[in-house]
Computed example of a mutant assay.
Amino acid sequence: MKLYRFLTAQDDASFCHKVTLALNKGWELHGSPAYTWNQETRLLMCGQAVVKDVEGKEYTPDTKLSEH
């Protein structure tokens, strides 16, 4: 099965660590990062799509993406 996740966080080291952890678990970057300004919190937010192929498993809506 192919899995998709969109990781988000404030534009700081926590976002880089979140993406780095996903890469080290076998996820691959998909597309370019996205940025948006949160007017309410006055913080820059980041997002990055990642994908991963998992052999021998079937996708269901109950699949825990963060466990793969």
Score class of each variant (00 low, 15 high):
38 N>L: 04
54 V>C: 08
31 G>Y: 02
25 K>H: 14
24 N>D: 03
38 N>Q: 06
44 L>D: 03
52 K>Q: 10
29 L>Q: 09
57 K>I: 15
19 V>S: 03
23 L>M: 12
14 S>Y: 04
64 K>L: 04
20 T>A: 07
43 L>I: 08
21 L>A: 12
36 T>G: 12
50 V>W: 01
17 H>M: 00
16 C>G: 05
48 Q>Y: 03
5 R>G: 02
33 P>C: 13
12 D>Y: 07
26 G>Q: 08
19 V>R: 05
13 A>M: 04
33 P>W: 08
21 L>Y: 08
10 Q>S: 11
6 F>K: 06
40 E>L: 09
4 Y>L: 12
33 P>A: 10
63 T>Q: 05
44 L>R: 15
40 E>A: 13
35 Y>A: 13
12 D>M: 06
34 A>M: 13
44 L>V: 13
12 D>L: 09
26 G>A: 14
7 L>Q: 07
26 G>N: 10
45 M>H: 12
2 K>A: 00
64 K>S: 08
63 T>S: 07
9 A>E: 15
18 K>V: 11
30 H>C: 07
57 K>V: 15
49 A>D: 06
39 Q>N: 02
55 E>W: 02
21 L>R: 12
6 F>Y: 07
22 A>N: 09
25 K>C: 14
28 E>S: 10
62 D>S: 14
55 E>D: 15
20 T>F: 00
40 E>D: 02
20 T>N: 14
54 V>K: 04
32 S>G: 11
48 Q>W: 01
39 Q>V: 03
18 K>P: 03
10 Q>A: 08
1 M>R: 05
64 K>C: 01
14 S>W: 03
30 H>I: 00
41 T>H: 01
68 H>F: 14
60 T>A: 10
2 K>F: 01
35 Y>I: 08
40 E>C: 04
52 K>Y: 02
42 R>S: 07
44 L>M: 15
13 A>C: 03
40 E>M: 10
37 W>E: 04
61 P>Q: 10
38 N>D: 12
23 L>Y: 09
30 H>N: 11
60 T>C: 05
49 A>E: 04
54 V>I: 15
55 E>M: 02
29 L>H: 09
6 F>E: 09
53 D>Y: 03
62 D>A: 12
22 A>V: 06
17 H>Y: 07
14 S>V: 10
33 P>E: 11
8 T>F: 05
32 S>H: 10
31 G>C: 11
39 Q>M: 00
21 L>H: 10
18 K>Y: 05
65 L>C: 04
41 T>Q: 08
40 E>S: 11
3 L>R: 14
66 S>T: 09
16 C>H: 08
10 Q>E: 15
17 H>Q: 01
60 T>D: 06
42 R>P: 01
66 S>C: 04
53 D>S: 04
17 H>T: 00
43 L>K: 13
60 T>L: 07
20 T>L: 03
43 L>C: 08
9 A>V: 06
59 Y>N: 12
15 F>N: 09
25 K>M: 14
49 A>Q: 02
7 L>F: 01
18 K>L: 15
10 Q>I: 14
16 C>F: 11
4 Y>M: 06
36 T>S: 13
29 L>Y: 12
62 D>F: 07
40 E>I: 05
24 N>I: 02
66 S>N: 10
50 V>H: 00
25 K>S: 12
21 L>Q: 05
